[in-house]
Design a protein around this nucleic acid. Sequence first.
DNA 1: TGTTTTACGAACTAGATAGTTAATTAATGT
DNA 2: ACATTAATTAACTATCTAGTTCGTAAAACA
Lengths: 218, 218
Amino acid sequence: MTSTPATAERRRDADRTRAEILDVAQREFARYGYAGARVDEIAARMRTTKRMIYYYFGSKERLYIAVLEKAYAEVRAVERTVDVEHLAPVEAIRTLAELTFDHHDAHRDFIKLVAIENIHQAEHIRKSEALAGLGAPVLDLITRILETGRASGDFVTEADAIDVHMMISAFCFFRVANQHTFGALFGRDMTAPEHRDRLRQMVGEMTVGYLCGSGARP
Amino acid sequence: MTSTPATAERRRDADRTRAEILDVAQREFARYGYAGARVDEIAARMRTTKRMIYYYFGSKERLYIAVLEKAYAEVRAVERTVDVEHLAPVEAIRTLAELTFDHHDAHRDFIKLVAIENIHQAEHIRKSEALAGLGAPVLDLITRILETGRASGDFVTEADAIDVHMMISAFCFFRVANQHTFGALFGRDMTAPEHRDRLRQMVGEMTVGYLCGSGARP
DNA sequence: TGTTTTACGAACTAGATAGTTAATTAATGT
DNA sequence: ACATTAATTAACTATCTAGTTCGTAAAACA
């Protein structure tokens, strides 16, 4: 059993080639959409040829699905590192909101892939078993925080975990996904560094403010 | 001057043909994206031919821009009917949030077109002069509400009109635009009728809650 | 009425694009 | 060393798609 050098350069390296295809394809799909992305263009941006795309992935659609799965897997890996269990409910939910903000900020290609997938009515996500049940962990976390917060009397608003997750995601997602049209219409790039901290704080305040209620309601 | 019958059917009717092309094209672009939409398919869904698309619009891209302009124009028309000036600031902002919700709910094609436009980095919106300065009216309105609310002491949070508009839009937009991936991951169709009223109330509470602050902050 | 202009339809084309064929070379196992 | 398998390349093809050509007929106009 001759072991292959893991670090040194090899003329032929299936893993490396596969990974490079996925990498380039992710950028291409995120930038131009599924239909707009060109297989030839992806090939041109690699050190290998178009034939390899079909060798490893079979079709444009299967390549796209593979890109989606990889992107979601990375996201899931980050999510697992979140630990807010030791915090009091108000701080836990604020921290979760801010971490979600950071996460969306750091994975813009992923955001765009999700937006693209929605245009296609999530048909590819639904096709992939690897992507089913991906939402459960966050919902469990939020559910526990909400229970604690209601028990302590901090949270007064009735909303379930999915509602709260949607509220947080909507803010973080929109800021990245709609930066271009919003920028064109309102003359402000919400993803610019000078707005980052303020908006990050805002999503935390917004969520906490909603759950805790305010003096303005009769 | 022979006047043409306005209501009766005519074999040739430029306005009608033009309008039908725009209508069919809007559905097609909203459903498949710019690159994914097929000119032939648009033609097949009309009672006229593909030739007419080029006769009236010149190219696929110019047709797409015309669709965008029409969609934005309709939206603007609705926006002009909003009158919340006579309301107290808290109710004004809540009403604005709920109206925005209704508006997004009622114009789903428009939402999808905006999502598509973001994938293309708003290049078409930027090309169209008809779409510049479209954001100003809402911002003026929010600015006035915020001023009144701060003067009365109802609003304590420091956020400007663009921030508030983004917060409201994000929620309403996300619910419609991301319904498919969200549904696939969390098993809930946020656009389903049984969630509508709750989410509508939620966006109002959320915005008011944020602006008025809550007891949870030190 | 005759002429011009506007609106329309069927068939066609050039180029782009996803996907293939078949030969080749590097690594692996014996 | 040699056979086998995995990885890779270059050139090719069928099809799809935006855009066109050319001819025609209904309105508008004089």
